[in-house]
Design a protein around this nucleic acid. Structure first.
Lengths: 217, 217
DNA sequence: GGCTAGACGTTAAAGATTTCACAAACTCAG
DNA sequence: CTGAGTTTGTGAAATCTTTAACGTCTAGCC
């Protein structure tokens, strides 16, 4: 693996890569052959200089006076983002949010696939949601296999307990949608997405960080 | 309004405020009287120096050798985060994700409340989900009143169209959960939360940014 | 009352990210 | 083939964020 190259890439850039990839896919689907950083900037709402800088970490991908070749860029990012090998994911907690994930067609445009789901409700067990089998949470360790990534959409009170079990089962990355800040060993990566906080933060910015005035009523 | 003071607060700090607030609430509920930046750090997974720095933007809230008084800090943040006045929110798109929001009890610990929801499916219209009335999307302008914030959980293909209508209806902040990057006038604030991208980014970090080695198998 | 340990608030440094601005290099039309 | 017009890639500057380090002050004990 060519970790040496990738390790140098700023985290802020890495987070934008999937975004670029998706929009390049769109463009390609529309039959576009070339694209400039300026066009891309308008589409993804990222400053064009930032886009050029981001791309430049991977070398000279474009041509001066021309822009970027969509197909080339796309195939480059496909490799970089490991789009060829699908990462299998487990989902814990088939509530509304969990169901939303299961019905989301990740595999399209995406290198991730939810392979199996777990829930504590006996009623849901055995059914399929969005084409994914739902198993009982008690059988998690047994049925999870070697999946490395888990999406956690359980009630907050369960979060830490389940996280501990996931870690024991060998999971190395958790996408945590519960409000609980879970504690895990240092070799496990956790990303928190906290819906209530996102909403509160938006409201805070709205009230305290005025944007342009509205021109008129 | 005391915008002068708040405008100076770094965005990174502002995004953490709701997180602090929630944990302080927890502590208070547990009957804790005092808390140090170190304790808080372990709970919210933010470096203690960062916490002290964050708090210091609001003045000297703690006492040397003692820490912070939970009650005082809580009441301070309640004012700062405008917890006393509830912000009313509209939700557009009562699919799985939208339903998850409607069932989420935001008002608890929170200054936001979803007042009304809209959906394109005639079947859902008229029902209540999570105690919120669902109206038809065609009646949006008419029934939305003066709500300033909207949560957008519609299919990506609808996102821009609905966003335009929201803006016309006077909304000034949108929490966009669709993969579409919507375009709005400069006086409207948009936060994008892109679930597929969050998952992909986590996978990318997992593969390319190794954490500590696992000690053993 | 005095001492020790603890914890804040802050200065300064380091690190990360974004943005500016422009030379270089390319395209394309004529 | 030439020249006008584009657009990249990148040094350098600006900005933002985190972290370290420590002086100062307080609590609480003897």
């Amino acid at each position: 693996m060519d970790l040496e190259e990738h390790t140098k890439i700023p985290q802020a850039t890495a987070k934008r890569l999937p975004l670029y990839y998706r929009f390049l896919n769109n463009l390609h689907g529309q039959g576009k052959m070339r694209v400039s950083s300026k066009e891309l900037s308008e589409a993804v709402k990222v400053d064009s200089a930032t886009i050029r800088r981001d791309f430049s970490y991977f070398g000279a991908l474009g041509k001066k006076g021309y822009g970027y070749n969509v197909e080339y860029l796309l195939s480059f990012f496909r490799k970089t983002l490991d789009q060829d090998e699908t990462t299998k994911v487990a989902l814990i907690g088939v509530g509304n949010l969990g169901t939303a994930f299961l019905n989301y067609n990740f595999t399209k445009n995406n290198n991730t696939k939810i392979e199996i789901a777990f829930d504590a409700s006996r009623e849901r067990v055995g059914s399929e949601v969005g084409g994914v089998r739902v198993e009982h949470i008690d059988d998690m360790e047994e049925k999870m296999g070697d999946l490395a990534v888990a999406i956690l959409t359980v009630p907050a009170s369960e979060a830490q307990g389940i996280a501990d079990r996931l870690v024991d089962a060998g999971v190395s990355a958790i996408l945590n949608f519960t409000p609980a800040r879970i504690t895990v060993p240092s070799h496990v990566r956790v990303h928190h997405i906290d819906l209530a906080i996102e909403l509160q933060a938006l409201v805070y910015f709205l009230k305290h960080y005025p944007l342009d005035e509205e021109e008129e009523e």
